[in-house]
Computed example of a mutant assay.
Amino acid sequence: MRNSYFQFKQFRVEQDKCAMKVCTDSCVFGAFVEVAEAKCILDIGAGTGLLSLMVAQRSNARIEAVEINPEAQQQAKQNFAASPWAERLHLHPVSLQEFSKEEQPKYDVILSNPPFFLSSLKSPDAAHNTARHTGELLFEDIVIFTRERLSESGNLYLLLPPAEAVYFAKLAQASGLYLSDTLQIHTYHGGKCIRHIQTYTFKVPASPTIQDFFIREEDKVTYTHDFVKLLREYYLAF
């Protein structure tokens, strides 16, 4: 049984009410995105609030978070209030579609670990389905919102499985958003790629970069140097 919370060095994520718990690839994502210079950040589909909390630790930005699920809303609100950055974290308990109707600033960074399985079978758990499958939040909604609300020099960051990442890239490019960088996350050296971290901008890149990132060594037990370096500010074990 998973813990009802995940303890980081500077904050705790309570997760007993959320279908999707803290996972390693999400932690890599939260630690990887560039936010040091950002003044305004949006987290689409906040869940427990993990990503918002991780970027709050590494920035001085005002952070907006959108979440549609009532139980996740309660959890994120709790986690935000208990963190050292409560005054900079703002939860909007609405869908992205409803949020888009409100007058909002331009965002320097938009990040999302969205519902992603486009064609896989759904589980009997409705909350789990909402968290994992496109339905309440569509890729098209993210693209449209980003086109309207991302600052001219801003970045959109997404965490997606490989197949869905390819689909999103085509959808984004057709709307004038361009994939500039991809970090391919592997469970271990020699293991398959499980997720892509994608960076999108309004500028057409001369040559999009692709890098591989390995969580563990070939023994499938030892964390890699790159993983330890990336998560050192967050994980108690490091």
Rank of each mutant, 00 (worst) to 15 (best):
N3K: 15
K9H: 12
F11Q: 08
R12F: 08
V13W: 05
E14S: 08
D16W: 09
K17S: 12
C18Y: 02
M20E: 02
K21T: 00
K21R: 04
T24P: 04
D25V: 00
S26T: 00
C27D: 01
C27Y: 00
F29I: 00
G30Q: 06
G30T: 09
A31R: 02
F32R: 02
E34N: 10
A36D: 13
A38W: 03
A38Q: 05
G47S: 01
A56R: 03
R58F: 06
R58Q: 13
S59R: 06
N60D: 14
N60W: 13
E71K: 13
E71D: 14
Q74H: 11
N79S: 11
N79M: 05
A81L: 15
P84W: 06
W85C: 14
L89M: 10
P93S: 12
L96G: 05
K101C: 14
E103D: 15
K106N: 15
K106C: 12
D108P: 12
L111C: 02
N113Y: 00
P114F: 00
P115W: 01
L118C: 06
K122A: 06
P124Q: 08
A131P: 03
A131G: 06
A131F: 02
A131D: 06
H133G: 01
T134M: 14
T134L: 09
L138C: 09
D141F: 02
T146I: 03
T146M: 02
R149D: 09
E152A: 15
S153K: 14
L159P: 04
L160Y: 04
P162M: 06
A163S: 07
E164A: 03
E164S: 02
A165H: 06
V166H: 13
K170G: 14
Q173T: 08
S175E: 14
G176F: 14
Y178K: 08
T182M: 05
Q184S: 11
T187I: 03
C193R: 02
H196W: 03
T199P: 02
T201F: 06
F202T: 05
F202K: 08
A206T: 15
Q211N: 13
F213V: 09
F214D: 09
R216N: 12
R216T: 10
E217W: 10
D219V: 15
D219Q: 15
V221P: 07
T222Y: 08
Y223K: 13
Y235E: 10
A237R: 13
F238P: 12
F238N: 11
F238D: 10
